[in-house]
Design a protein around this nucleic acid. Structure first.
Lengths: 169, 169
DNA sequence: TTCCTTGCAAATCCTTTGCAAGGGT
DNA sequence: ACCCTTGCAAAGGATTTGCAAGGAA
């Protein structure tokens, strides 16, 4: 499954989209850090190392372009924090487990049953072409840690979460 | 299912959170327009009609407070567009079908099987306390309409979508 | 030549913060 | 008296836009 980069090149070519050095720099960084959920600015800084003349506006324009073409997807984990991830234009849904404690978005793949999607379409008439889910809770590491120690800030935040959880039970 | 407002009042009282006229105005608008997915500014304008001295900053502060308490949830359909929806602090997950054509986020409830969540927890060790999914595609209305007529802008946008869909098939 | 793409700086939009004032407890 | 809450204006951050210049087709 390493040909996602190849798929991307192919997709761009197929659509006669010029692959400028700026765009390629962005694409390469997205590929290299594809497990990292980069923000636009992080992406900009990293891509600048490949192509130093690069401007931030160009990064935004490139991200928008890539998105239209289906090469990447925006994910919003927090208000005002947009992250981007490369995706194989051929396929591929994956979802995120966002820990309320450490905030780290962990990825999960393929658990989603296609039947569920069919069911939704049947019931609503809505034709689903794409989807994306976020799950909130506590990751394994944070659950273990919070049983033992508890640094000030972390504990406070955890308490909030617990309260929320209680309210729902 | 009309007692969501009641649950909210109860929840605030339980936590000894003062219900100022500003906060109540926000709550009432959220309740009244609970199917509308208001943005902060829309909310502000509508709440202002109830309590004209209301300031925008207060709306933001109130939204943050309500969110901590579990009275509402933020939903991000588009970059830079945060919408808020009231939720029963007692329960309730629901998801959205976002039409790529008309952009209208339609809600669906309860289709999500609990087993799926358990499965995820088993496989990842991640304890899910909350989740939220967005499905993208074309709603029934838009699918029907696009078969018949096609206004300029709409057709153009639809084409984009179709292309994306093709790329995935 | 014409169209596409870019960098830079300015503009815009959404949200948060500082602060002094008002009100509840 | 003390703490919470507010409105206003200013600040902050992310993203977009205007524009003139450089390059590809």
């Amino acid at each position: 499954m390493d040909d996602i980069l190849h798929s991307c090149y192919q997709e761009l070519q197929k659509r006669h989209i010029r692959l400028t050095p700026q765009r390629e720099a962005v694409l390469l960084v997205l590929y290299r850090e594809k497990d990292e959920h980069l923000t636009s600015y992080e992406l900009f800084e990293k891509a600048k190392k490949i192509y130093p003349e690069l401007g931030l506006a160009t990064v935004y324009r490139t991200l928008e372009l890539f998105q239209e073409v289906g090469l990447l997807r925006e994910v919003q984990f927090d208000k005002g924090l947009t992250q981007y991830e490369l995706r194989d234009p051929q396929d591929g849904h994956h979802h995120h487990l966002v820990c309320k404690h450490c905030g780290y978005p962990q990825e999960i793949d393929g658990i989603f049953p296609e039947k569920l999607l069919e069911l939704i379409t049947e019931e609503t008439g809505f034709m689903i072409t794409d989807y994306c889910c976020q799950f909130y809770g506590y990751c394994e590491k944070c659950r273990v840690n919070s049983d033992k120690d508890g640094k000030q800030a972390k504990v406070e935040e955890l308490t909030r979460g617990e309260v929320l959880k209680d309210a729902r039970t």
